[in-house]
């Protein structure tokens, strides 16, 4: 059965004499996991926001064009 290898927190932090090496590796790993899971979500949100803006702008341009068309028609009458 696996047994706990450390009897105190400071022992755990020290990792023998290798606290720097072990903890830097685990820090990099945590950052790596976070990056891989969070970045696609951020990019997805950005894309959706950008698309919504584009749809809204297209709709606005369409109404503007329609009203201009209406004015032109009237002036021609």
């Amino acid at each position: 059965m696996p047994t706990l290898q450390f009897s105190s927190l400071s022992e755990f932090v020290q990792m023998g004499t290798y606290s720097f090496h072990v903890w830097v590796v685990y820090l990099l790993f945590v950052l790596f996991v976070g990056y891989n899971l969070i970045l696609p979500g951020v990019q997805r949100k950005q894309f959706i926001r950008q698309q919504k803006r584009r749809v809204a702008r297209d709709a606005e341009l369409a109404t503007q064009a329609a009203s201009r068309q209406g004015l032109n028609n009237r002036s021609a009458e």
């Binding site: 696996p2 706990l4 290898q5 755990f12 004499t17 290798y18 590796v25 990099l28």
Partner: peptide
């Protein structure tokens, strides 16, 4: 991090293996 025994040669650096 907590339960793997210290390696006879490499001590606690063996824990790096579980990421590497």
């Amino acid at each position: 991090l907590l339960f793997v025994p210290e390696d006879y040669q490499q001590g606690h650096t063996i824990r790096i293996m579980y990421v590497h």
